[in-house]
Write a protein that binds this DNA or RNA. Structure first.
Lengths: 345, 345
DNA sequence: GCTTAGCACTCTACCATAAGGAGTGCTAAC
DNA sequence: GTTAGCACTCCTTATGGTAGAGTGCTAAGC
């Protein structure tokens, strides 16, 4: 026994219907709502076959069928009608990006908000992660006492800063000397090319080596890839409460697990990183690499900056999510974001 | 009929017990657990009186009593045993502040996290709001094309930045000219003294007035009190999911209202601003100026920087919250934070 | 006159049982 | 291969009945 056209049609009908209702689907529902030109008894037989094949499952003997993870997988891979996003939408979305000042963090935030609004699920957007950014400018601003503000500007206007408390009150000239030298040597360099050797070479040329060493630590944090302080890679989350609208989350325990997860950014970061993406990827139920949300699905897409993949966005929802709509939306948003970033440049 | 010592004792016992169990409290429970040297029948009579007086209420005829808002109010004002925070705690909390780099936003975040951890309720902390900060430094960094990064440093190391896209590619010298002049004139000025007149006076002295006008807008946003872009005043929230542990939130609808509120920062900001504080303030049930959370209580305290009140922190929990513990904790954290900020200076 | 034991009464929470309904699988006829 | 018919299963909902907690009232005691 194997798949045939009719089985596919029935599977598709069951999944479409289940996505809408969240209730087990019976044979009569299918025969009435979908024009398959066969009786409910025939559909019953086919559904029993689909269950044997692993695409459907039955909560209990006298209930209708619900899709299994395997069923969703087949649906997403072979049965889905890709939804078309009307071109007029792009204009609307672009307007949202214009409202905010165009900083990376804001763009990411707007994106996550829109994704969650459009899909009514939870959106995750990772901000651009250490791509081929260039070093632009370093500024050392003396503050009161022994404190210095270290400000680093990176290509496309990303600014990071930190306050460092030194052993002694630094001389203004020394700070200027250091920052002038660093700016001379590093300006325009890709961040990934800036390594310890460059810093060591710099150190040799400096008068006040102690001061440099004190500042060095925070510079590394900003600049080098291993830096722990990076704004990039941060996860923006939006629409966490949308899951409460889903009937599969009527159980408080489940909600708890979910929301607790959202308070741990590391976990989300790891989650997204564990999913390899080329374009659009759907991860269904058991395939999800995080135990707590094995009864959910993820639709992930990557977005690019200067034609390099720099970040990811994802929708997290129940396995019974509206795949056609979500896939179309995520794909679309990734494209628009990439375009917006390119133009920003 | 009015309050007497025994009534007060019974009211206190009922509230203490209810805080622990979240169940209506019967007369027998009180007579057994608390040494009041009277029988349950007497307590029954007194409880009926307390109900007439409005301090207690009965969910239904044959249930025990639960405190009313008025009851909690009396408890908080007159009956409470202030809990003592052991001095050793301060050391522990200070350590937490040391872990992070000492930026205002981080300090605020650490504070909210600790508040929610210590109390097991939801914590809100407003970051310092436009106090007597001083202007420290302005830096204009040219980026690719027509873009300029505007970076402003304020006393105690608060840094804000924004990217501005200009009409034309600016000349490096002009940017330097402008920033030099602004730094000369504004350095050390309290932000609240920097007004339009000063900017207008500045404009007169500048060569490239067009460029200045373009930058002017974002400067105003950072500096002036009406600025919309202010980091300060932002609300940090932590422990939102803690409310799920409370039995009064076993109803999903209630949870929804609560969590939806948390996604709206404006509302939270407004909420805190509507509560006048001098030291520690408790807002109970109906007293809360936000309809959605009228069955909750807030414990609010303000913290200071350079001996001026600059921000607020609050714990939000059910009216049946552990007032002695929460009040002690909030008070304590506000003090420690104020101390930490003073030392940071 | 305040306190208390005793008791009838009320209301909820819980459990068991029953009825209703949706949906299946199987059989036999087409 | 398809379909009508039917017995069967299992869930859901409603019903009734009971146990338990707690009250308010009364009358006796100190």
């Amino acid at each position: 026994m194997e798949m045939n056209v009719r089985k596919k049609g029935i599977l598709k009908a069951v999944i479409n219907e289940y996505i809408l209702t969240a209730e087990p689907i019976g044979s009569r529902t299918i025969s009435k709502k979908y024009d398959l030109n066969v009786s409910s008894a025939t559909i019953r037989n086919e559904m029993a076959d689909l269950e044997d094949l692993g695409y459907l499952q039955q909560p209990h003997t006298s209930a209708g069928r619900i899709p299994s993870d395997k069923g969703y997988r087949f649906y997403v891979d072979s049965l889905i009608d890709i939804e078309k996003i009307p071109g007029s939408f792009e204009e609307m979305i672009r307007k949202k990006y214009l409202v905010r000042k165009k900083e990376v963090q804001d763009i990411v935030q707007v994106t996550s908000r829109m994704l969650s609004h459009l899909t009514r699920y939870t959106a995750l957007v990772a901000s651009p992660s250490s791509p081929d950014y260039f070093f632009q400018h370093l500024q050392l601003v003396p503050l009161e006492g022994k404190k210095v503000a270290v400000i680093v500007v990176i290509s496309s206007g990303l600014v990071q800063h930190q306050t460092v408390t030194l052993q002694n009150r630094p001389a203004r000239e020394e700070l200027e000397h250091i920052s002038r030298l660093i700016n001379e040597r590093l300006q325009g360099l890709p961040l990934k090319n800036i390594n310890n050797e460059i810093f060591r070479a710099l150190e040799k040329e400096l008068r006040d080596k102690t001061l440099f060493r004190e500042l060095y630590k925070s510079l590394v944090e900003f600049i080098s890839e291993e830096g722990t302080n990076q704004e990039w890679g941060k996860i923006h989350l939006d629409g966490a409460t949308n899951i409460l609208e889903q009937p599969e989350f009527s159980d408080l325990e489940k909600v708890k697990v979910f929301l607790k997860l959202f308070e741990q950014e590391d976990m989300l970061k790891q989650l997204l990183n564990q999913i390899p993406t080329e374009g659009l990827k759907v991860v269904i139920g058991r395939e999800v690499p995080l135990e707590e949300i094995r009864d959910c699905s993820l639709v992930v897409a990557d977005y690019s900056f200067q034609d390099k993949t720099v970040g990811k966005m994802a929708i997290l929802g129940p396995t019974r999510m509206n795949y056609p709509k979500v896939m179309a939306t995520v794909n679309f948003m990734a494209e628009v974001l990439s375009k917006v970033l390119r133009e920003e440049d």
